[in-house]
Simulated assay, not measured.
Amino acid sequence: MTFTMVLAWASPLLFHGVLRLVLIQGIAAALWSVVLRQPYWWIPIHLLFLPLAIAMLALQLPSWLYLSAMLLLALVFWGTVKGDVPLFLSSHAVADALAAMVERENAAAFADLGAGVGSVAVPLAERHPVMKVEAWERAPLPWLILAWRSRGLANVAVNRANLWDSDLAGYNVVFVFLSPAVMVELGDKVRREMRPGSLFISSSFPVPDWPPESVLQIADRRGTRLFCYRI
């Protein structure tokens, strides 16, 4: 914003009118995002943030709507300000692939760390009713949806707890869809706690400096890859 204000002072004709100022501010912020090599999704955020903020002010919406939106986001993305992983949803194709994998592994116990709304844990429990499925989710709203979806499944245990508090020794297969920021620490935890011969599967994000046993390409919209690590 400071960069745009300097340009506005230097070239007032270029910045005549609020809409033009907003447009140039968004473009400048997006260009700086590219220069600083931020993740690609920041580009539309920088382009749209100020125009959307002005549009919301122009609509003169009641203040309780903003409070409600903030509370909803807090319930979904609980703990991200402390470094927790945001909500990522796995596709049906990923659930199908995992169902086939746990069958080949003859798994008796499966853990989904950071289970979200149960996009993996619930379909796996439905397809393998004799397999114990434990789902770990900390955010209140996804946990509530997960608990509701799995209410009729006797083989599912839902834990509203931090995944770092889990003990991985009792699982044949552990699945995660988290973030690159935690994969080094998680890899250490997995190798320290999981039993030899068990299988650790990470969706989309590999563990640095740990060659996977195999990488499975999923034919979904995201082009998901499952990184499979044999303990």
Score class of each variant (00 low, 15 high):
Asn159Gln: 12
Leu153Asn: 12
Trp143Arg: 08
Ala95Glu: 02
Ala161Glu: 13
Leu144Asp: 06
His128Gln: 09
Gly152His: 13
Ser179Asn: 14
Phe110Ala: 05
Val133Met: 09
Arg127Val: 03
Ala108Gly: 15
Arg138His: 09
Ala139Ile: 07
Val156Thr: 11
Pro142Ala: 14
Leu98Glu: 13
Asp167Met: 02
Tyr171Asn: 04
Ala111Glu: 08
Asn159Ser: 04
Val94Glu: 12
Met101Tyr: 05
Arg104Ile: 05
Asp96Met: 11
Val122Ala: 12
Leu168Lys: 00
Glu103Thr: 08
Gly170Tyr: 04
Ala107Gln: 06
Ala99Pro: 00
Arg138Met: 10
Asp112Tyr: 00
Asn159Arg: 15
Asp167Arg: 11
Val174Leu: 04
Pro123Thr: 14
Leu124Tyr: 08
Ala107Asn: 10
Val174Asn: 07
Trp143Gly: 01
Pro140Met: 03
Arg138Thr: 04
Leu141Gly: 03
Gly152Pro: 09
Met101Gly: 05
Ala161Tyr: 02
Ala147Asp: 14
Asp112His: 01
Pro123Phe: 09
Tyr171Lys: 07
Glu137His: 03
Glu105Gln: 15
Asn155Ala: 01
Gly114Glu: 02
Arg149Asn: 12
Ala107Trp: 01
Ala108Phe: 00
Arg149Thr: 05
Ala135Ile: 08
Ser119Met: 10
Leu146Cys: 03
Ala139Arg: 06
Ala139His: 10
Glu103Tyr: 04
Trp164Cys: 06
Ala135Tyr: 08
Trp136Met: 04
Ala121Lys: 06
Ala181Arg: 14
Asp96Val: 09
Val173Tyr: 02
Phe177Cys: 01
Pro123Cys: 13
Ala121Trp: 01
Ser166Thr: 07
Pro140Val: 04
Pro142Ser: 14
Gly152Ile: 07
Leu153Pro: 08
Val120Thr: 09
Ala147Met: 12
Val158Thr: 15
Asp165Ala: 13
Leu113Pro: 01
Asn172Asp: 15
Met131Ile: 07
Met131Trp: 08
Ala111Thr: 07
Val176Cys: 05
Leu168Asp: 00
Ala99Glu: 11
Pro180Asp: 04
Gly114Pro: 00
Arg151Phe: 00
Asn172Tyr: 02
Glu103Asn: 06
Arg151Lys: 14
Val156Lys: 13
